[in-house]
């Protein structure tokens, strides 16, 4: 059985979706079968990194949750649509996007939805697509679909910035993950300002949360300039950000 990797941050703006998309691409490039689910139903965004927008998006997770299609019919094959990302051509990488249409987001918020169905959809796509790795891009903070993603994950990666608000929020996520018996927990720092003593930062964070810090990604102006229009680690593979990200991808691959 493949592993479910949930990517979470307690607060928004940590770069979670960007990191999730890049990690998924790197794992797919290691010839693994990879799925990416956008579980951020109320503020979806990861589809942009794979070249999707409202005009070219097919079925969505919202359609599945409303019984309009199967979970298989939500899949967007990144490997078959890799003109802009030739490194991913032919790779087994699928995106399961959420709707970006305002009325469909408001419908979910107004009516709620069946969490059992969401879980069954996730487990079904694991088996039907024979995934080695399913990445779940969660909504920041804690809501029901985020808690479900944490509860079913084999590995939870919590992203934080070197910021006291993030430090406190991360403690909440770590506590909840432990109380839900998540088997493996990793931490990642993003947007670390150059000049920090990275070894000291790693020591402080690992001591505070008693979990391994798997990567410290530097604050990256080129990434900001890229404006989510592409997968940064593919376009700039030699950049320090990309190199550090690949270490995290290797750590994910090493989890049994």
């Amino acid at each position: 059985m493949g592993k479910i990797v949930s990517i979470h941050s307690f607060r928004g703006g940590t770069g979670k979706s960007n990191i999730t998309a890049n990690l998924a691409a790197q794992v797919a490039m290691a010839d693994k079968r990879v799925g990416v689910v956008d579980a951020d139903i109320q503020s979806p965004g990861i589809h942009v990194l794979f070249g999707l927008d409202e005009t070219n998006m097919g079925n969505t997770l919202n359609d599945f949750l409303h019984g309009k299609c199967t979970i298989r019919e939500v899949a967007f094959s990144v490997g078959d649509n890799a003109t802009q990302r030739p490194q991913l051509a032919g790779k087994s990488l699928w995106l399961f996007p959420c709707s970006i249409r305002g009325h469909e987001i408001s419908q979910i918020l107004r009516d709620g939805f069946d969490i059992n169905l969401l879980n069954e959809g996730l487990q079904t796509l694991m088996s039907e697509f024979e995934l080695d790795c399913l990445f779940i891009d969660t909504h920041p903070g804690l809501n029901e679909e985020t808690l479900l993603s944490i509860a079913i994950s084999d590995l939870l990666i919590v992203i934080l910035r070197p910021d006291h608000q993030d430090f406190q929020g991360t403690a909440v996520t770590v506590d909840i993950a432990r109380s839900l018996d998540v088997p493996k927990l990793m931490l990642m720092v993003n947007k670390a300002v150059p000049g920090y003593d990275y070894d000291d930062l790693k020591g402080q964070i690992e001591a505070a949360y008693k979990a391994p810090l798997t990567g410290i990604l530097p604050l990256n102006f080129e990434l900001a300039d890229n404006a989510s229009k592409d997968l940064f680690s593919l376009r700039y593979p030699l950049h320090a950000w990309s190199q550090e990200l690949r270490k995290v991808a290797e750590a994910i691959l090493s989890v049994p």
Partner: peptide, 16 residues
Amino acid sequence: VNLRRRAGSNLSETIW
């Protein structure tokens, strides 16, 4: 397994 449904909003229907 039987998970509780994610509840909808309590905002008034007029707002929606």
